[in-house]
Amino acid sequence: MSYYDLLPRPLSELLAEHPYIEDFLSSFGLEVEPGQESLQDYLVNLNPDLLEDLGIGAEQLQQSLHDFINGMLALDDPLDQVNSLTLIGGFNKSGTAENLELTLKPGEVICIVGPTGSGKSRLLADIEWVAQGDTPTGRKILINGEVPDSKWRFSTEHKLVAQLSQNMNFVMDLSAEEFVRMHAESRLVTEPEKKVEMILKQANELAGETFLPDTPITSLSGGQSRALMIADMACLSKSPIVLIDEIENAGIDRKKALDLLMREEKIVLMATHDPILALMGDKRLVIKNGGIARIIEASAAERKNLIALEELDNKLLALRNRIRSGETLESI
């Protein structure tokens, strides 16, 4: 199905089936009635003076609607399968070659560790851009063993990569519910209301303090924002590759968060300073001076220590909760 199939159909049907068409037209300042008129006739009959006032030409409006509808229809297409991601080394900040080729498969969790400023976010950015030697690091990324179609870079419908960034601020004047709904609608998910409800519920399970659907997003706490973003990503994103830039810095349940994000078979790369998260990964890439200096495979001994670390963490968490509720820590 494409734009041209929709053109001859009456607006009454179209607006009911594809409500985003009305939204599109209203974003140009145009009104539309759900009557018997076809979309084609509606477009042809638009008053040229009105269009001139609105700052758009008839031809351009039709081209934009064409691109928009085809983009929306493409959201229904099955995603291209990603079976592997290959990282071909480039150069560190001193120009020394990284000399490596690393292939990652769905289900793997790779941690990226290194001092601040060493290039962790740059590595994530190289993957997001599907770099082909055209970033400062000179790295190359292959998908399924091949140089991918450059559509991966610019597609907003079929994003290869979903990212959870370091920053969790909001500036939009919307409630949590409105915001998530707008995000869901832009992804054209089926049953957006159910998704919105699910995201808000999961976010509240992750965050320490609960918040209401009508809480303005700008007044969420750091932990609440982070929880909302993680739930949002887990429920709305279909991208086969997930990049996470430091989720540890706020009051959320990290383990639950990671479980939520790793539920499906995805390739997960996560920059982190947190020992528990680092040990949960299958591999650790150690970044120094802009380059991957070492790859560590999680050993059996490390895995065992993860259990001890989690116990330690729970103990700390219990102490933190006691402090929060005003208790003293004279005996621990």
Binding site: S27, Q63, S64, G71, F154, N169, M172, F179, H183, L228
Partner: peptide, 26 residues
């Protein structure tokens, strides 16, 4: 984009896409 979260960037970009669906958005 450094000032806002990833999700807010996406929502904003989708509003841009709505009025210019043919453009490359970066």
């Amino acid at each position: 984009g450094d000032i806002v979260s990833q999700a807010e960037r996406e929502v904003f970009a989708s509003r841009v896409k709505q009025v210019n669906p043919g453009a490359v958005i970066m």
